[in-house]
Write a protein that binds this DNA or RNA. Structure first.
Lengths: 120, 120
DNA sequence: CAGCATCCCGCCGGATACTG
DNA sequence: CAGTATCCGGCGGGATGCTG
């Protein structure tokens, strides 16, 4: 009955659960996707690009991504401050997987929207 | 500077944002992954497999996935009731993308955990 | 410019009890 | 067995105001 050997059991030490918990938040994946498309962006540029994100959440999101080693933060010692963000190699290795999801989303969003409207 | 033409602007009608919002919840992706590995499962089997999910959240999650047309629900008219869930073609088309993420998670979870511990 | 601090609301999701 | 119904706490995340 089982096709592949994937273990979904208890949360700790389960990479699947751990990753899903990590990127289950509202902004992480979006930030990675954008940084993947623009190589390097300043804090303000990122914020303008996303449009609807608050300063707080962008800060929090970037900090988490930096902690996980997916994003690098480069601070220029100048006034006014300038901080540049970009993906690390680890972040870059995740990018194609997320872009694959984006591709699927673009191709199938219409169908999903239709399904939703039918079930009303 | 921009590498690909991906539009991340305002939420409505943006497939990326829409999909991320949709699967940003705690359980959806996990249910799809499991159904993808077991073809067909009953409600109870799914719940035991996930382990930590409540009846409520499994119900809610399955209902959303059914509404979006990613999962089918087959009810057997018998007592006690028997309900079987499986992926639709649409759900199956999403599966490889998610499994690609799982593969990445398995390969890189260790590194991420290490990064996290270093930044304490 | 790039944040940090604080307040506070909404809602996700857990616990529990009840049905066909 | 496969759900509903309800109650409720936690926290994700928005709004606002303040700094180096």
């Amino acid at each position: 009955m089982m096709k592949n050997e994937i273990n979904f059991s208890e949360t700790e030490n389960c990479p699947v659960r751990n990753i899903l918990d990590r990127f289950g938040d509202k902004w992480s994946t979006l930030v990675i996707l954008i940084l993947g498309n623009y190589d390097t962006l300043r804090f303000n540029e990122l914020q303008k690009m996303i449009g609807s994100i608050s300063q707080k959440m962008l800060t929090v999101t970037l900090k988490k991504l930096e902690t996980d080693g997916l994003v690098t933060r480069k601070v220029y010692a100048q006034v006014p401050p300038k901080v540049e963000y970009s993906l690390t190699d680890l972040g870059l290795s995740l990018l194609p997987k997320l872009e694959s999801l984006v591709k699927w989303a673009n191709e199938n969003m219409h169908q999903i929207t239709k399904n939703r409207s039918f079930s009303k």
